[in-house]
Amino acid sequence: ACNYMYLENDYEQRGSSYWEFHPLKSGRRQLMNDSDGRMYPFYSVTQSVHTIRVGHHWKTNKELQIKDYFHPSVVWELPYSGRVRLTDIHRQQQFLIWLVAVRHRRRGVLTEAQSPADEVHVLKKIRWDYNLRMKVDSHLPVGERVRWFTEYQSEPPQVSEPDEAHLPEESTKAPHCNAAQSLIWYPRDPDRYQRILVPPKQIIVPWSQWVREMLGSKSRRRKPAETAEIRWSPYLVQ
Rank of each mutant, 00 (worst) to 15 (best):
R103P: 00
V142E: 15
W148Q: 15
V136I: 13
R106L: 02
G108V: 00
D137W: 12
P162K: 00
T150N: 10
R107W: 03
T172C: 14
V136E: 04
E119D: 00
R133F: 11
E112N: 06
T111H: 06
A101H: 04
A180K: 02
L183W: 04
L183Y: 08
Q153C: 09
A165P: 00
D137P: 04
K124R: 11
P157D: 07
E112M: 15
S154E: 15
R106F: 09
L123V: 03
D163L: 12
W128T: 15
D129H: 06
L132A: 02
A113L: 06
V159E: 05
A180E: 00
E151S: 13
P168A: 05
E155D: 06
S171Y: 08
D118S: 14
K125G: 05
A117G: 08
P168Y: 10
S138E: 10
R127V: 09
L183I: 03
S160K: 14
E155T: 10
V102M: 15
Q153D: 11
S115T: 06
D129Y: 06
A180I: 01
H176Y: 11
H121G: 01
S154H: 02
Q153H: 14
R127C: 07
E151V: 11
Q181R: 14
V120E: 07
N178G: 03
E119P: 03
P116Q: 06
P141I: 10
V120R: 13
L123M: 15
T172L: 01
R145G: 02
Q181Y: 02
K173I: 03
Q158L: 14
T150K: 14
V109F: 07
A117H: 08
I126C: 08
Q181E: 00
M134W: 06
M134D: 03
P157Q: 09
K173S: 07
Y152K: 05
P168E: 07
K173V: 04
C177G: 01
E144G: 10
R147K: 14
P175V: 02
A117T: 01
E144F: 06
E119L: 11
Y152T: 08
E169G: 02
V120T: 14
A180M: 02
I126G: 07
D129G: 13
V120M: 12
K135S: 12
C177S: 12
P175G: 00
R127N: 05
Y130G: 03
F149S: 05
A113R: 15
E161H: 08
P157W: 08
P162M: 06
D118Q: 03
R147E: 11
P141F: 12
E112F: 04
S138T: 14
G143V: 01
R127D: 13
P156I: 02
V122A: 14
A117R: 09
Y130I: 01
V120F: 11
V136G: 07
V120D: 00
P162A: 02
V136A: 09
S115L: 03
K135Y: 13
E151Q: 13
E144Q: 10
F149W: 15
I126N: 00
W148T: 01
D163V: 07
